[in-house]
Design a protein around this nucleic acid. Structure first.
Length: 469
DNA sequence: GGTGTCTGCCC
DNA sequence: ATTCTGC
DNA sequence: GCAGAATGGGCAGACACC
């Protein structure tokens, strides 16, 4: 994170406004409103939000919020929190800010916790639902910005090249413009909902509709909102934190707002523990909707009871670590039995077979690939032994020339499936700690077009650990 | 309807 | 996927 | 060692545009 210094610099640039450029004749030219009084609300919020930076133990949500209980959380509040984070580079402080921000939302308008979490993580829907904004980071957003703020596209583009951040361009464009009437303040839900609307738009003319929805949001922004809205639209918050940090902050926030249960007595550090729980739970069931819901109704400490591996919702697949030397493997696994499998050169596939016979296939990043491999789905239903009612497979899909190539043996430990050469096979594996054998095995894997070996411990620590991302 | 660009996803 | 950075 | 950010090659599907 080359952030600390770069960020500070950006902050400076940010205050250098773009000169009020002449605009194409169809657009109203507006006068700077920087002298005009801001709404009371905003001033009040701005005078208080620095409190978010306090250590969570010294923080009081009641002192920051300046909206009524159950009232929709202003997008300004989130933006100000982002602004505070922008000046920080250490993740501990960033987590505190996020934690306090989330606590404030829980304390005032718990219904808004879910959209707030989504925006903070810069996501719009569970990964496996495949709901994407679908307009990249450039051209269409540039269009929206130029239309919303009355600039020419080429002007925006030029500023973009100069500043290297469309968010700053948006901020600059906005601040030298004034509104005929104050727009209705944006709320967190409004932004989150609109992002979904943008994502849902598809087909002919959809790009324009997406652009218009963005424009409508941009037009309603003030202060630092254009910056963060733009970055949210670009799917690139650039604040030095990401999902893991949000999850940790969510867990910590829940500890402070815990009404449901006290931390179990044997827990040393409830904050760390809660953060870990939320992160782990998310890796098993990556759906904020369920986790946030469970968190609010029954608390963090009960999360693991309600949020579990769910058929049809892809877990984050366990990842491998790369190494280039076989001897290092022996060193690492010296006290345990391990196996080496060919590392097939294909695509990761996580396959769910539900009790009703339906099949879902997901990619490494939880994209729904069910329709991509119809043959795989069919073949598994066929080769599954009748006693097996449901299953989850984590495997590699490869293309296979059935005429020329043939892949060999099968191991015995799997007795839930029949193998079928060229359709469904278990990885070629060797269980050995003989360096010579391993070297040879590695070479053999490369010879048939694999990428190397996968090493897996078989006894100690031999669990499936979802990836932490 | 064909072509070209954009976008996102795989590794 | 890899590579780099800060913590 | 971990989390986050930035980067690259290849490719396919979606959409815009002529």
């Amino acid at each position: 994170m080359s952030n600390a210094s770069a960020k500070k610099k950006r902050k400076l640039e940010e205050t250098v406004d773009t000169p009020p450029t002449r605009v194409d004749d169809k657009t109203l030219v507006l006068i700077s409103d920087s002298k005009k009084p801001k709404s009371d609300r905003v001033t009040k919020l701005k005078s208080k939000f620095g409190l978010l930076k306090k250590k969570p133990s010294d923080f009081d949500p009641e002192k920051v919020s300046c909206w009524e209980k159950r009232e929709r959380v202003p997008f300004m509040f989130l933006s100000l929190a982002f602004d505070l984070i922008a000046a920080e580079s250490g993740r501990i402080v960033i987590t505190h800010i996020l934690c306090n921000m989330l606590r404030t939302v829980i304390a005032t308008t718990p219904d808004d916790l879910l959209p707030t979490v989504y925006l903070a993580a810069n996501e719009i829907a569970p990964a496996h639902e495949g709901i994407k904004l679908g307009m990249g980071k450039g051209s269409y957003i540039i269009k929206a910005i130029s239309e919303a703020f009355g600039r020419t596209e080429s002007h925006v583009e030029q500023q973009y090249t100069q500043l290297g951040d469309l968010g700053l361009v948006a901020n600059g464009s906005r601040s030298s413009q004034t509104m005929i009437f104050m727009p209705k303040p944006l709320t967190v839900v409004k932004v989150a909902d609109t992002l979904r609307l943008i994502a849902k738009e598809s087909g002919k003319g959809s790009k324009d509709k997406k652009k218009d929805l963005m424009k409508a949001l941009l037009v309603a922004t003030t202060d630092c909102e254009p910056l963060y809205l733009t970055r949210l639209l670009q799917d690139n918050l650039r604040l030095g934190f990401s999902r893991q940090t949000v999850l940790a902050a969510l867990g910590q926030a829940a500890v402070y707002n815990e009404e449901h249960s006290k931390p179990p007595p044997n827990i040393k550090n409830p904050l760390d523990e809660a953060a870990t729980i939320v992160k782990e739970v998310f890796s098993m069931l990556p759906v904020y909707d369920i986790i946030v819901g469970a968190l609010l109704t029954s608390g963090v400490w009960n999360l693991p009871k309600t949020c579990n591996l769910t058929l049809g919702v892809p877990v984050r697949p366990m990842l491998a670590k790369a190494t280039t030397r076989v001897d290092l493997i022996l060193e690492k696994f010296k006290d345990t039995v391990f196996t080496a499998e060919y590392k097939y050169d294909g695509e990761r596939a996580q396959i769910y077979y539900m009790e009703d016979g339906t099949v879902e296939i997901f990619s490494r990043h939880a994209e729904r690939n069910t329709g991509k491999y119809p043959d795989v789905a069919l073949v598994l239903s066929r080769l599954k032994k009748p006693t097996v009612k449901s299953f989850i497979l984590d495997c590699e899909v490869v293309t296979f020339n059935r005429e020329k190539e043939k892949i060999l043996p099968l191991q015995k430990l799997h007795d839930s499936f029949e193998e079928d050469l060229g359709y469904f096979q278990f990885a070629t594996a060797l269980t050995s700690n003989d360096i010579g054998e391993l070297q040879e095995f590695l070479k053999a894997s490369i010879d048939i077009g694999c990428e190397g070996l996968m090493i897996k411990s078989l006894y100690s620590n031999a669990t499936y650990e979802p990836a932490k991302y």
